[in-house]
Design a binder for these strands. Structure first.
Lengths: 129, 129
DNA sequence: ATCATAAATCGAGAAAATACAATATGAGTT
DNA sequence: AACTCATATTGTATTTTCTCGATTTATGAT
C-alpha cells in the first residue's frame, strides 16, 4: 500500500498532462491488457529462444531430425550442457524427442519456432555503443 | 584442450552408430551452421522479449504510441523498473522514444515485434508437471 | 549378469537478469 | 534564479539462468 501505490498514483497524476480523460485512458489501457496466460506463454517461449545454444539447436533441426550426439557436435559443448538445453526446448513444446535404441532423435515440434527464428533474425538491432 | 575436446570426440564416436559417413555428417552440420551475427541477433531479440513486463509494454503499444507514464500504469510497477524495461526494448531496436516536452512517447519501431508476439502466443506450451 | 554407451538428471558454483530506492537529468513553470 | 515534474540512470540486493562434472538411467551387446 506504500511505495508501490505511491508510484502508481504519481503516474496517474502525470497522465493529466497527457490526456484530458484520465479515467477513460486508464480504463482503455486496462481493457486491452492481454490475458495472464497469453503473456506467460509468450515470455516462456521467448525465454526458451533467448540463448545462442538453443537457437543453434533449432537451426540445426530445420531440415529434419538430428540425434543428441549430432547436436553436441554442432554446439561444441559438453553432453550435459546440450542435454540441459534440449530439455528446456522440449519443455516449452518447441521440439520433440524420439527414442530409438540408445539414441534420441530430436525434431521441431512446432514450426512456429522456425518462423520466429526467421523474423527474429531480420530485426535490425543497433550496435551497443 | 581437455574435457571440452574429450566430450566432442565422444560425440563424434557415437555418431558412428548413427550414420555411415561420420565425416560427411560433421561437414554437413558445420556447413549449415548459421552465421555468428545471425545467432547473436536472434538471441538478443528473444532476450528482449523474454520478460512479462516487456511483453506487456509491446502489447500496449499495438495500437499507437503511449507515454512512459501510461506504460507505468499498465505494468503497475515502479517508475525506475518501467524505465529499465523501456531501455532494453529501445536498445534492441524494437521500440522508439519520441520526446515531447516533459513526456516521452514510445512506439513500436519494428512491426516484427508484433508478429513475434502473435506467433509466440500461439505456441502450445505443455503445463509444467 | 556384466559391461559399454547414449542420454537424462542432479548439484553447486558462476554469470546474467531483475527489482527498485536513490539520485541525476532535462524540460517547463513561477 | 529556484521549483516542479517526467523520465533516465546508478548502485546494489535478489533472483534466475547457465555451465558442466558427477551420477543415474536406459538400452544393447557379450
Amino acid at each position: 500500500m506504500s511505495s508501490d501505490n505511491d508510484a502508481l498514483e504519481a503516474a496517474c497524476r502525470s497522465l493529466e498532462g497527457v490526456c484530458d480523460d484520465v479515467e477513460g485512458t486508464v480504463d482503455a489501457l486496462t481493457e486491452q491488457r492481454p490475458a495472464e496466460d497469453r503473456v506467460a506463454t509468450q515470455a516462456a517461449v521467448f525465454g526458451a529462444l533467448a540463448n545462442e545454444h538453443r537457437v543453434r539447436i533449432l537451426e540445426a533441426l530445420r531440415d529434419g531430425e538430428r540425434c543428441a550426439c549430432e547436436l553436441q557436435v554442432v554446439l561444441e559443448a559438453p553432453q550435459s550442457t546440450v542435454a540441459t538445453h534440449l530439455r528446456r526446448l522440449r519443455e516449452t513444446g518447441l521440439i520433440k524427442g524420439r527414442k530409438k535404441g540408445k539414441w534420441t532423435y530430436y525434431r521441431i515440434a512446432d514450426t512456429a519456432a522456425l518462423e520466429l527464428l526467421d523474423i527474429g533474425a531480420a530485426v535490425d538491432v543497433p550496435e551497443s555503443d
